[in-house]
């Protein structure tokens, strides 16, 4: 049943966000720490475990893969609702600090990629 996949995905997301909120409170800040990352880890572990013990049916799997495929359209919608005007109106300070930070971060990627365990 396709709803099993969707429900499993939803359950992982909710558990992750709840744990992320707890982590935030633990450190005394009003923010979610890594909730979505925890949810992703949960899904990875769970799907790994389920694959070993019994197969998720093809249709059940589609309840998850559909959302992963609809990801790019969602990102396009996300881009269409950004406050682009606000970013440009922020003036030189905003443009400069954001711009330089992004540029330096890009330059660091090849450097850090050399770190292996």
């Amino acid at each position: 049943m396709v709803i099993y996949g969707v429900a499993l995905l939803s359950l992982c997301m909710l558990l992750g966000i709840i744990l992320g909120e707890f982590l935030g409170r633990l450190f005394g800040i009003d923010a979610n720490i890594g909730g979505i990352g925890i949810a992703m880890l949960l899904l990875i572990f769970l799907s790994d475990y389920l694959k070993k013990s019994f197969r998720l049916g093809d249709i059940t799997e589609k309840g998850i893969t559909f959302w992963s495929m609809i990801y790019i359209p969602i990102v396009v919608a996300m881009a269409s609702k950004q406050n682009v005007l606000g970013a440009i109106d922020g003036g030189l300070i905003a443009l400069l600090s954001g711009g330089v930070a992004v540029l330096l971060s890009f330059l660091l990627i090849p450097v850090l990629s050399k770190i292996k365990k």
Binding site: M13, I64, T65, M78
Partner: peptide
């Protein structure tokens, strides 16, 4: 186009991001 706000909002975006984790190798 107010629906774009829902489709591109944090809830569905995060939901889809979690879904992409399916099949990631540990």
């Amino acid at each position: 186009l107010s629906g774009v706000g829902l489709l591109g909002g944090a809830m569905l975006r995060d939901f889809a991001i979690v879904a992409t984790a399916y099949g990631v190798k540990l």
